[in-house]
Computed example of a mutant assay.
Amino acid sequence: MSNPCRVSLCITEEEDEVQPYSSKAATSSTHEVPIQNSPVKSWQWWLMVGVNMFFLIAGQTASTLLGRFYYNQGGNSKWMSTFVQTAGFPILFIALFLFHSKTSSTQTVTSSPAPTISIPKITLIYVVLGLIIAADDLMYSYGLLYLPVSTYSLICASQLAFNAVFSYFLNAQKFTPLIFNSVVLLTFSASLLGVDEDSQGTTSISHGKYILGFLLTLGASATYSLILSLMQVTFEKVIKRETFSVVLNMQIYTALVATLASLVGLFASGEWMTLQGEMHAFQSGKLSYVMTLLWTAISWQVASVGVVGLIFVVSSLFSNVISTLALPIIPVFAVIFFHDKMDGVKIIAMLMAIWGFMSYGHQLYVDGKKGRKTTVSVEETS
């Protein structure tokens, strides 16, 4: 997994500098250096954004398709599916190690002491968030089991609407007409799939399990958005800084707790006793079974690298928007690989989800443009 590490290293080289198009303020870093608005700097920033977007979209798409492949080939362990969503977190230690190695050899112009963090408090936060993540992953696992991939991914797009609501209450985000439009569109998109019986597809899943899968996926999307907002509150109120290493530590330790919780669930549920038989009965073979789980875990962490990179380089909100961008793409691959049915209702739901995403994205563009104008005016007056 050298590629994610190289991308992470590129990001850390710029950590203590204010990005020319970043929403981060200079005070969010523990070090301050002069702003460099050279064309090369701007080009590097856009390159980092683009590469991390690719990691996030590719990782999320691959992990979702592999998760469905696991079920299609005879896998049935919901806790194993939950476990692999976070079990690859040790990969992130490589990025963290490279980050510390790089920053230890760099010099900064000025430095200020990092705020003191209460170890018991941050540990409690990591544990609580990790347990919520484990529950969230379990809901996603049930949703992917009971729903066609195309339906599942389109319902997941509702996380952007939930993110707007939670950000309004927890992060003081303004509820503009564009965001309201996005929330309405994404809500209608998910509602269409909920009431459309044809979205159940040609699988043998009963209507009751389809409804359960729909509700759990919707609940998982809401929970995921809540997690992002709680992380943002933690950065602002507890840690009081949002550097690359801080975001990466948050990702690693919450994933560790979620992985341990998934293991407890795997053994407590008794599903661990069925894994050997599941591997032998896997339609494409034992090796395929192991590789499916392995690459699912790796794919999730590739997506995590993209998430962390975008949170640092741009913002957590932008990271969530880009993760939502992948969701309308997945149904296309689902039709190709799993022959999912794409009826008129699904197409309309997908178009509404894309419209909602574009509305949300345009609001980000407007906010960013206003922020840059404000920065320029402040610099001119000073």
Rank of each mutant, 00 (worst) to 15 (best):
N72W: 06
L92G: 03
Y71D: 05
T108P: 06
L96V: 07
F69N: 09
N76Q: 13
N37I: 15
T116I: 14
T108D: 09
S63N: 12
F54K: 03
N37E: 14
N72I: 13
Y71Q: 06
T108Y: 14
T61P: 05
Q73M: 09
T86E: 01
I91D: 04
Q73K: 12
R68A: 03
W46S: 02
M80S: 04
N37R: 15
G75A: 04
S104A: 14
R68V: 08
K41V: 15
P39M: 06
T110R: 14
S111T: 14
F97K: 13
S81E: 12
R68N: 03
A62W: 05
P115M: 00
G74A: 08
S111W: 05
T82K: 01
S81Y: 13
T103S: 08
L98A: 04
S101R: 12
P90W: 04
V51F: 08
K102H: 09
T106K: 11
S104D: 11
W46Y: 13
F54G: 06
A87D: 01
I94N: 03
K78D: 13
I94V: 15
S112Y: 14
K102E: 07
L66H: 04
T61Y: 03
K102A: 02
V109Q: 10
F93P: 11
N76M: 09
K78H: 11
Y70Q: 03
N72Y: 10
G50N: 10
G75R: 05
K78N: 12
L92S: 02
Y70N: 02
Y70M: 01
T86Q: 10
S42L: 10
G67E: 06
N52R: 07
S104P: 08
S81R: 04
F83I: 11
M53G: 12
T86K: 09
W79V: 07
T116A: 10
Q85Y: 07
K102Y: 08
L98E: 03
N52C: 13
G75P: 10
S104I: 12
S101I: 13
T61D: 02
L65E: 03
T116R: 04
S81T: 15
A58R: 09
M53S: 13
V40L: 12
Y71C: 01
V49W: 01
M80Y: 02
T108Q: 13
S63Q: 11
L47Y: 15
F93M: 09
P115F: 01
A95R: 03
I91R: 01
F97D: 10
F55E: 04
P39N: 05
W45G: 00
Q107D: 11
T64P: 11
G50L: 12
T116P: 02
T116K: 07
S77I: 13
G74D: 08
Q44K: 15
Q60M: 09
G67F: 05
T110V: 15
P113E: 08
F97P: 02
L47P: 00
N52F: 04
P115T: 08
L96T: 06
Q107W: 01
F54S: 07
G74N: 08
L96D: 04
A62I: 14
V109N: 08
L47H: 11
Q73R: 12
T61I: 15
G74H: 08
M48A: 02
I57Y: 06
M48H: 09
G75W: 03
T82S: 06
S42M: 14
L98I: 06
I94R: 03
S105A: 11
K102P: 00
G59R: 01
Q85V: 09
F99N: 14
W79E: 01
